[in-house]
Amino acid sequence: MNLDLRIPMGLMFTLVGLILALYGWATQGSALYARTGNVDVNLLWGIVLFVFGLGMFLLGRRSEQKLRRQPRKVVVSNRPRPHGH
């Protein structure tokens, strides 16, 4: 299949991670985190997801570029080739 799943998956987690991390950064020290023992889980988990997503995306891109650089496979016919050249 020509679509490398790591690209959309990586992109989604990069965006989700970014949103969570930014929101966590903006709400640092808020009463929101009383339920998690005052740990800013949005910021921490956002960074984890961002790194994971970016890693997946870059791996997917690299493999796609590698495929593009490879010469196209020539379909070899079963018919015997003429002798000579």
């Binding site: 989604m12 987690f13 989700v16 998690t36 740990v39 889980v41 988990w45 994971f52």
Partner: peptide, 24 residues
């Protein structure tokens, strides 16, 4: 493809739940 995406999302959504729950 979506099943794989959903699998990753389930880990992303439930792993912090386990970690926070254990911490608490």
């Amino acid at each position: 493809y979506n099943e794989v995406l959903q699998f990753a999302l389930i880990i992303a959504g439930f792993l912090p739940l386990v970690l926070i729950g254990l911490h608490n």
